[in-house]
Design a protein around this nucleic acid. Structure first.
Lengths: 242, 242
DNA sequence: AAGTGGTCTAGACCACGCA
DNA sequence: GCGTGGTCTAGACCACTTG
């Protein structure tokens, strides 16, 4: 009984923002149902159709999933589906490539010029950096360098010393009340050098696929910048076109 | 005054199929407007809301574009936007990489095993094959081998001998009444060899990005299979994640 | 049988483009 | 000022899941 929808945006936009915040804040927990469409309509003083349109968008943004006859559920970032959301690596058969990742290093300090540019931050603001190595069937596949704005994920910096489990964007985003939206990835070829070559166990000069990825929040703020060097072997990267 | 919508699919699905056919058949030409929402509703005996939902999908599928106050337009496959739809190559700056392509060869014969598998055809059916070379700023960038089901694009095979302008999927699809939907692209690394190396002007063994792409019709039938070998230089491939 | 999301209707009014 | 698409409403009925 408390929805305030006042400004000039369409009501369904205001509503989806309001509902998204309630998910981000933990008001509705992952895996739980949210109130049904009629109850939401009553609560916010809207018609069912308007609520429906807001939920359509949230479903498209993967914040919720709806099942006829059962209800509307908050997407669980720890679920298998969600984990695969940004994993575009595939086996030759087309099957999703399951990788095991482990953390190599983590640190926090002011953003470099490049990091500030990629993460749309002021240079004096802090970023938390991580290195990870991902393996498939015991073979190192991908070396990753990740940078995130520290203010978005305070838990990460706080955990720095601890026996942190491997960083996963979607998991930390959920725990920090950050809602993840879309991203893009620049793909090119590079040669293995130094640290990258040694972690991947290849001779310097070996050609690698280089991934340069930025993922944004649903408000379109950059939430993660990652550079990854991949020695895919028989595997490949799958891009979808529409 | 003639819409027949009878079967058990939702009306908005039947309607979008019906309207899509009218576009494919040339009933409404690219760049032209289609009747307004109220007129379509009357013609098919539906409510405006149902028509709207069908048009939403068609807009999402890039068959039409809507402009408030002006009308609803059939997407022109020859337009700049459409041409860029499946072009994921970008300059270092992020700008779309404009390439000039020219045809190297074209022929038609029964599908190979691989082609039949990729294009979901029977092996005895015919495919039309083309080779293209794409250049940017005069430098060869990408060598392409394309295969399409001949029955989908009869004009292509008919034009074989002629001074054919460079093949463009979207253009031929329009002329053949085929509506293009989505696609996917497998990305990996390969080494330049033989014909590929010579066309690209690189020494054999040079690492290249290999693109293996299938594009489907809106009915999800494969319409084009392409293998492309890219010597991108400072450029890159841009994938979008959602 | 009760409760959920999914479809469909018939209207009203608003925002925009154009003559 | 008129015609277009965009938003919003209030209600009906259907399809599916669960107890």
């Amino acid at each position: 009984m408390s929805g305030k929808l006042l400004n000039s945006e369409p009501l369904y936009v205001q509503l989806r923002v309001a509902l998204s915040r309630r998910i981000a804040s933990g008001d509705w927990k992952p895996g739980e149902t949210i109130p049904n469409e009629l109850d939401l309509a009553k609560e916010y003083g809207l018609s069912a159709g308007t609520v429906r349109k807001a939920l359509d968008w949230m479903e498209e943004a993967k914040l919720i999933s709806r099942q006829q006859g059962r209800g509307t559920f908050v997407t669980d970032p720890a679920s298998k589906e969600a984990t695969r959301r940004f994993n575009r690596l595939r086996e030759a058969s087309g099957a999703i490539l399951r990788v095991e990742a482990h953390m190599i290093a983590i640190s926090t300090s002011p953003a470099s010029k490049t990091e500030a540019a990629r993460l749309d931050m002021e240079p004096q603001q802090h970023v938390t950096r991580m290195s990870k190595l991902a393996s498939a069937q015991g073979r190192p596949i991908m070396f990753e360098q990740i940078a995130v704005p520290t203010d978005l994920f305070p838990m990460l910096a706080a955990n720095e010393g601890a026996q942190s489990p491997c960083y996963d964007l979607l998991e930390f985003a959920q725990r920090s009340g950050v809602l993840i939206g879309r991203g893009d990835e620049r793909i090119s070829i590079g040669a293995a050098e130094g640290e990258v070559a040694s972690h991947l166990g290849v001779t310097p000069g070996t050609p690698l696929i280089v991934l340069d990825r930025t993922i944004r929040t649903i408000e379109n703020r950059p939430a993660e910048w990652r550079m990854a060097w991949c020695n895919l072997g028989p595997h490949h990267y799958l891009a979808e076109l529409s």
